[in-house]
Nucleic acid binder design. Structure first.
Lengths: 235, 235
DNA sequence: TCCGAACGTCTACGTTGTAGGTCTACAGTC
DNA sequence: GACTGTAGACCTACAACGTAGACGTTCGGA
C-alpha cells in the first residue's frame, strides 16, 4: 500500500537493518491483524508479537492504542484518491463512492473504525490523510461552480450516504453459510410468524441482496436530488 | 420492554425484595453509565458497583458483555415507535427519521453501538426489539402499496441515510468550546494553508452546522428520489 | 570526544472479562 | 417434617489487557 522507504540498500549499515521498525510497518501489520481477527483481535501485545518485537516499542510510534487505531483507519482511507480536476463532478463522485465501497469490502473489519473513530476526534485534529479526500472533493466541487457551503453540503450528503450504505451492506454479508433455504439461512424461522409475517415472507429478497446495484440506485437518488436542489453557478 | 414479573407485592416475603435485580435494571443503569462515560466507561465491575452488587450477578442476566451491549442498543432502539397504520407513508418516514435523530442526540454515546453492533450479529438472531421497527415499516409500506422488495429497499435507503446522517451530526458536536474564532475553535489553524485552503476558508460554514435542517434537506432528496424511482401500485 | 535523542527491552501496576466453586434460600415431592 | 433440585448471590482466581517508568544501547551531530 504505502511505499516502503525509498532506499533501503544504500544505508550506513546498521540503520533500518532487518530489526528496524517503522510506523508504516506497525500500521500495516495492525491492519493485517484487524483484517484477520477483527478490531478486538488487535492487542498491543499481539501486534508486537506479530512484529517479533517487545510490546513496548509500539509506544515509540504511537502515543496510545486509540491513536494507533486512528492510524489504521487513516491508512485505509488514504487509499481513496480523488481527482479534483475531473471534468464532470457527478461522475467523479460516483467513482469515489465505488472506490469507497471497494475499500470497505476489502477491509470489512476496519469499517467500524472508519465510521466511529472520527467521533472521538474533532475534525481538524484528525490526521491529514483523513482530511485529504475532503479537501480534494471541495476543490472538485468549487471548480464545478458550487459555492463553498454547498460543496460542504454535498460532501456531507455523499459520505453520510456512503457510511450508511457500507454499514448496510456489511450487515448482509455477515452470514453466508451455504444453506439452501433462505428462511433457515437467515435464521428467520426463529421469529414468531404472527408478529413478523412480512420479515419472514421476504426471506428470499433479503438473501439476494446486491450491494453494487444498491449503491448505484442510492447514488441515482442522491445525485438527482442534489442536482435538482443545488445548481452550480459557473465561474 | 419485556414485562416485569406481573405481581411483585404479593410475594412470599424475601423474593424480589429490595435487593432483587432485573434485566431491565441492569440495562437501564448500563445505559446511564454509557451516557455519562462513553462505551469504554462501562465495565462489568463498574456496572455492578453502580447497582451495589457483586459483578458476577450480571451474568445471571446476560451471557456476556457483548450481549449486554446489544441489550443497551436494543432498549434505545425500542423507543423508536412506528405507526404502521399511518395514512401517508412519506410523512410517517419523516417522523421516524426525526425520532431517530432525537434518540441519537439523547444518547450520543450509544450511537456507535447502534450502527456497529448489528455487524456482529446476523439479522435474524438479533433481539426482537431491534426487528420491531423493521417489521412495522415494512407493513407501513406494503399497506401503502409497495411490493415487498421495494419496501425493503426503501427501508434500507432510509436507515442507511439515517445512520450516515447521525454519524455526521455527532462528529460536528464533538467540539463546542466557547471559542469565538471559528478557525481556532475547529483547530483548523493547525492545517497548512497551502494544502488545505478550502477547508480553512470554510471555517464558519463548518461551525454553523445545523443538524435538524440538514436532516430535512437530506430527507427531501431521499423522498423525492424514492417517489420518482418507485411507485406504489394500489392494493 | 561528548551529548542528546531515539530505539529497544524489562518489570510492574491496576483493570478487564469471566470460569469455577461454594453457600444460601426456596419449591416441589414424598 | 425430610429430601432434593434449582436458582440466586457471593468469592476467589486467572489470563490478558494497556501502559507507566526505569534502564541499556545505538547513533547523528557538535
Amino acid at each position: 500500500m504505502t511505499p516502503p522507504p525509498a532506499e533501503h540498500a544504500g544505508r550506513p549499515a546498521g540503520t533500518n537493518r532487518d530489526g528496524k521498525i517503522t510506523r508504516e510497518m506497525v500500521l500495516a501489520t495492525a491492519l493485517e491483524l484487524i483484517d484477520r481477527d477483527g478490531p478486538d483481535g488487535l492487542s498491543m501485545r499481539r501486534l508486537a508479537h506479530a512484529l517479533g518485537r517487545d510490546p513496548m516499542i509500539l509506544y515509540r510510534h504511537t502515543p496510545n492504542k486509540a491513536a494507533l487505531l486512528d492510524g489504521v483507519a487513516e491508512t485505509v482511507l488514504a487509499q481513496l484518491t480523488v481527482d479534483p480536476t475531473a471534468r464532470d463532478w457527478a461522475t467523479e463522485l460516483r467513482t469515489i463512492a465505488r472506490d469507497y465501497r471497494r475499500l470497505a469490502l476489502a477491509h470489512p473489519h476496519v469499517v467500524p473504525l472508519l465510521v466511529t473513530r472520527p467521533l472521538a476526534t474533532p475534525l481538524a485534529l484528525r490526521p491529514q490523510g483523513t482530511l485529504r479526500p475532503l479537501e480534494d472533493i471541495l476543490t472538485l466541487l468549487t471548480r464545478a461552480g458550487f459555492s463553498g457551503p454547498d460543496a460542504l453540503h454535498i460532501y456531507r450528503a455523499l459520505f453520510g450516504f456512503l457510511h450508511g450504505h457500507v454499514l448496510n451492506e456489511l450487515q448482509e454479508l455477515i452470514d453466508n453459510p451455504a444453506e439452501t433455504d433462505d428462511l433457515l439461512r437467515l435464521g428467520l424461522h426463529r421469529l414468531p410468524i404472527a408478529e413478523f409475517p412480512l420479515l419472514r415472507s421476504l426471506a428470499t429478497a433479503l438473501a439476494s441482496y446486491n450491494g453494487a446495484t444498491e449503491l448505484e440506485r442510492g447514488l441515482d437518488i442522491l445525485l438527482t436530488g442534489l442536482t435538482t436542489t443545488l445548481t452550480p453557478h459557473p465561474a
